[in-house]
Structures are given as structure tokens and as C-alpha cells.
């Protein structure tokens, strides 16, 4: 069962996230569960495979907003970095970055 403590252990800034949710714990946890069921990371993987940086930018930009609003720091940080790289269409090892994000995401989903 997902709890605030588990999210803290994961590295999320739950106090900040809770403040945005008016300290409504169940509401916050529902939103976090919704984020767990989001399929955008799968689409991101495909966009990276296809070198579609525009599509990749849109997805990471969107996820950045969601993760930062929920203060899911371990996810927010790499996604933010990827967003800026995609925005400037910089050549980088996106596969490696993506793998890191997926690793953390899987860890997140298993909370």
C-alpha cells in the first residue's frame, strides 16, 4: 500500500507535495497513484527510438510539470534534464537517461 513514508523513503518531497494538495493526504496519494498509471514514459521510449526529439520534448515537458507538482524529486530531476536537452535538440545518450528514468519509475511503481 502506498504511504507517505514510502514516498519519503523513495526520495519524494512529500511535505511540499502535500502543501499543494492542501495537506489532504488521501487526495495526494490518489494523484500519485494516477502518476504511476501514466503511460507517457512508454511513448517517450518510442520517441527516443525514433529520434523524434519534438515528440520527446513534449512528453518530457508534460511529465516534468506533473512530477514537480507532486514533488516526485527522483523522477523530476532526470526528466527536467532531458527536457532541456530535447528543447535544444542537443545530442546526448538519451537511451541511458531514459533507462535511468525507467529504473526509478519502476521503483516508484513498486512502492
Amino acid at each position: 500500500m502506498l504511504t507517505i513514508d514510502k514516498l519519503n523513503d523513495f526520495g519524494a518531497n512529500t511535505s511540499e507535495g502535500l502543501k499543494r494538495c492542501l495537506n489532504m493526504e488521501s487526495f495526494y496519494l490518489d494523484l500519485v497513484k494516477t502518476a504511476m498509471n501514466d503511460e507517457q514514459l512508454v511513448k517517450l521510449g518510442k520517441a527516443i527510438e525514433n529520434n523524434d526529439y519534438d515528440q520527446a520534448f513534449e512528453i518530457t515537458h508534460s511529465l516534468k510539470g506533473v512530477y514537480s507538482n507532486l514533488s516526485l524529486t527522483p523522477l523530476c530531476e532526470p526528466i527536467s534534464e532531458m527536457t532541456e536537452l530535447f528543447r535544444s535538440k542537443t545530442q546526448a545518450d538519451y537511451k541511458a537517461m531514459y533507462d535511468l528514468v525507467m529504473q526509478r519509475f519502476n521503483e516508484f511503481c513498486n512502492l
Binding site: R20, L22, T34, S62, G65, N69, L70
Partner: peptide, 16 residues
């Protein structure tokens, strides 16, 4: 907002 989470979060704040 196209993101459900963002809509709900903001709606919760403003909905008071």
C-alpha cells in the same frame, strides 16, 4: 490543462 493530475491539483486548490 492536458494533464489530468495538474487539472485535479489546481481544481482542488481553487475549488474551495
Amino acid at each position: 490543462d492536458d494533464e489530468l493530475i495538474n487539472r485535479l491539483l489546481l481544481g482542488n486548490i481553487v475549488g474551495r
